[in-house]
Each structure stands twice: as structure tokens, then as C-alpha cells.
Amino acid sequence: MDDATDDTNDGAPATITPEHDALLLDVMLGRLATYLRVCGYDALYALDEGIEHDDAVRERAVADGRRLITRDRDLAAATPGSVLLTARDVVDQLRELRAAGVELTPTERPTRCGTCNGQLESAEDDGFRPEYAPETGLVWRCVDCGQYFWKGSHWDDLTEAIERL
């Protein structure tokens, strides 16, 4: 856990929030992206963006003004503002992020698509509810991929894991 650092402040923790920080997760952190999206982060996953090589990942983070989250020491050292993680387990990665100053609070309502990172809007506005969605509760639709979401057992599992940190 001691290796999680914010290079912009000589290794000292700095507050990272979904309101102020967009993230790019390298190819080793796909599962982590879903947890960060539950916390409201604009969290791109490198493989979903078709980028895999370190140079391309670094260039994308810098070009988009995104903070890079990575397990690759060399990539972290070469990318200003990056956060280096050492853990393989996603819950341990979340602990490292919290220690590095990353705010991890599940949102009251889903704001980001767990699949593609697109923004969610209320599906109630268009009057359509998929047959497979629960009959009660709010439903949201991703504006990018069209997938529907609701607060079900998957949401509960993700938020519970974050809250137990």
C-alpha cells in the first residue's frame, strides 16, 4: 500500500474527486473501472479505448487531462500525476487508492455506465422500461451504448465492498 503515490505532490496524498478528476485505467485494471464508476468517476479503461501500449496510454492520459491509474512502475514514473498501485486484488486496489487520496464514495444514483463509461440518464423520461428490469425502482439508460441500469444486487455488492474499506 505504501507504493500508491501521487507524483504531482512528491508522493504526498492529494484529494482526487469525481468532480475534478477524470481517470484513465491501464490494461491491468479493468475490474477497478467499474468500482470507480459507481463512485461517479469518469473512468476510461485503456482496452475499451483500443489502447494497450504504454506510450499510447501515457499520451491519451496527458492529451485528455486524465489522471492515470496503473500497476506499471515505468508507466507511472513517465506519466505526471499518475497513481501507482501494487495490489492485484480489486478490493486491495481500492484500499491503495483511498490511501493515495482518492475519494471513494458510492453515488446516490448511478451516473456512469459500468460497461462503457457513458453518462446515464433517467429512463423514466422516455417512458420505456425493459422487460427484464424490476417492476419497481428507478431505471437509467446509457446515452452512449443504450444499456439499462438499476440499483439491484450488483450495485449493492459493489457499494458494499467500497463501504467496507
Rank of each mutant, 00 (worst) to 15 (best):
I16S: 00
L138G: 12
E108W: 03
I51G: 02
M28S: 02
C39L: 11
D89M: 10
H53P: 00
D26Q: 02
R129T: 04
L84I: 01
P130S: 12
R31C: 07
I16P: 01
L120D: 09
L84F: 09
E96R: 06
V102L: 11
D48H: 15
E59I: 00
A76Y: 06
C142Y: 08
D89K: 08
E103M: 12
W150P: 04
P13A: 11
D6K: 13
L44D: 03
V57F: 06
R129Y: 14
G65K: 04
V102D: 00
E103R: 11
L94Y: 11
V91S: 06
L138I: 03
E131P: 05
G40C: 04
Q119L: 12
T5I: 14
R112I: 03
Y41S: 11
T115V: 13
V143A: 14
G118N: 05
V38C: 08
A46L: 11
V143D: 14
E96M: 00
R112Q: 06
T79D: 01
T105W: 03
L36G: 08
G11W: 01
D10Q: 13
Q147I: 08
E59R: 15
G146V: 06
G146Q: 08
V139K: 09
L44S: 07
G118F: 11
D6V: 13
A99C: 00
L68P: 07
G81H: 02
V27F: 11
R88E: 08
R66F: 05
G11F: 03
D72H: 15
V102F: 13
V57P: 04
H20E: 13
A77F: 01
A33D: 03
R98W: 03
H20N: 14
P110H: 03
I69R: 07
A78I: 00
C113R: 01
D3Y: 15
A133D: 01
P13H: 06
Y35G: 03
E121M: 03
Q93P: 05
T111G: 04
M28N: 07
T111R: 08
R31A: 07
A77I: 00
E135F: 04
E124R: 10
C145V: 02
G146C: 09
Y41L: 06
I16D: 06
E49S: 14
A78C: 01
E19R: 14
V38W: 14
I51F: 08
A63N: 10
R58G: 06
V91C: 04
L75E: 08
T105I: 06
V139A: 10
N117W: 13
T115W: 13
L44M: 03
R31E: 05
R95G: 05
L104D: 03
N117F: 10
G137T: 08
A12Y: 11
P130M: 10
N117G: 07
E96W: 05
Q93T: 11
C145H: 01
R88F: 13
C39G: 10
T17G: 06
N9M: 10
E124G: 00
G50E: 00
A43D: 03
G127V: 08
Y35E: 01
D54H: 06
Y132D: 10
W150Y: 12
T115F: 14
